[in-house]
């Protein structure tokens, strides 16, 4: 136990170091009209630099965006916009060891036995649940905070719950700092430290629920808090090799409620984990033989 406090303490100190240098800059505040260009890399970097972001990370974000497109992990214009507006590097800054690896396809260690999922997984999950502006979305497992950050670009009503108290506090503090810095879209995120098993009853029902932690069954309270016709996605399996289970809740004409389970790809078998790696500024495939 002592080691854990020691390690997380060190990470916090180091993160504070990253934070203090990075926070001096200011970001152009969020508005729903922000529209990052999707035509060329240079235009995107120029646009992002004008917003106040780091051109190196912007370049990596663009390259990963291209990989996401090719792998069909992202296709809707709103999700594309959300991806291009979200600074993964800020969420990776909690662990100096992964700070510069924020745009790699890998899942990354953020401490407390929790990983930050890769951009391909998050892209697919976000695009598949197809969040419309105004919808209520509940996320179970705040973790690094990046998944809720994507959703904050899609709807004003993002709710996220984290079970591990120090992690919940750390990510909340990160959102606050990012809001101060100009990423005002994160005001759309309501956070809570609690046992996600019981959902967020005061805010229920939800249109969409994203669970980012696995147990041996789908928590009944979450199914209860999902609107009829709603959609819940839950990854199953070890980090990096997860399948995403989609649970649909439907109400029949007679009022009876049924559920069905499938893969988020509607049952099609697709290579789920992306096989590309960012190698310098190039994207290298690992499965191209």
């Amino acid at each position: 136990m002592k080691r854990r406090t020691f390690v997380s303490g060190t990470a916090a100190v180091a993160a504070a170091g990253v934070v203090s240098t990075a926070w001096a800059a200011s970001i152009k505040p969020y508005s729903w009209d922000l529209n990052p260009p999707t035509d060329t890399r240079d235009n995107f970097i120029a646009w992002g630099t004008a917003r106040g972001e780091d051109p190196t990370f912007l370049g990596q974000r663009w390259d990963r965006f291209q990989a996401l497109l090719r792998n069909k992990d992202i296709w809707g214009p709103t999700t594309i916009r959300a991806f291009l507006l979200t600074p993964r590097e800020e969420f990776a800054s909690v662990n100096p060891a992964i700070y510069k690896r924020a745009y790699e396809h890998n899942f990354l260690d953020i401490g407390y036995g929790v990983t930050m999922s890769g951009p391909h997984l998050q892209g697919r999950m976000t695009n598949v649940i197809d969040v419309k502006r105004g919808e209520k979305v509940l996320e179970i497992g705040t973790g690094s905070g990046v998944q809720a950050a994507y959703i904050a670009n899609l709807t004003e009503n993002t709710y996220t719950i984290e079970i591990i108290a120090p992690l919940a506090a750390r990510t909340r503090a990160l959102y606050d700092k990012l809001i101060d810095k100009g990423y005002t879209e994160y005001k759309h995120i309501k956070t809570k430290q609690a046992d996600g098993y019981y959902g967020w009853e005061q805010a229920a029902p939800f249109d969409k629920i994203i669970v980012t932690c696995g147990i041996d069954h789908v928590p009944p309270p979450l199914l209860q808090q999902l609107k009829a016709g709603g959609l819940m996605v839950i990854p199953v399996g070890p980090p990096g090799a997860q399948r995403v289970l989609k649970v649909s809740k439907t109400q029949g004409a007679d009022g009876s409620i049924t559920t069905s389970r499938e893969d988020i790809y509607g049952g099609k078998i697709v290579p789920f984990v992306p096989f590309t790696k960012l190698d310098g500024d190039k994207i290298a495939g690992t499965h191209n033989r």
């Binding site: 497109l69 090719r70 792998n71 069909k72 296709w75 598949v128 509607g266 697709v270 290579p271 190039k282």
Partner: peptide, 25 residues
Amino acid sequence: FAGTPADPTAPSDKEPNDKPPPGAP
């Protein structure tokens, strides 16, 4: 799956067996 090497500039239909998820074009 076998396919041509992924070229970062190649059009997206080069990806073998990568069927579009529901909702995708």
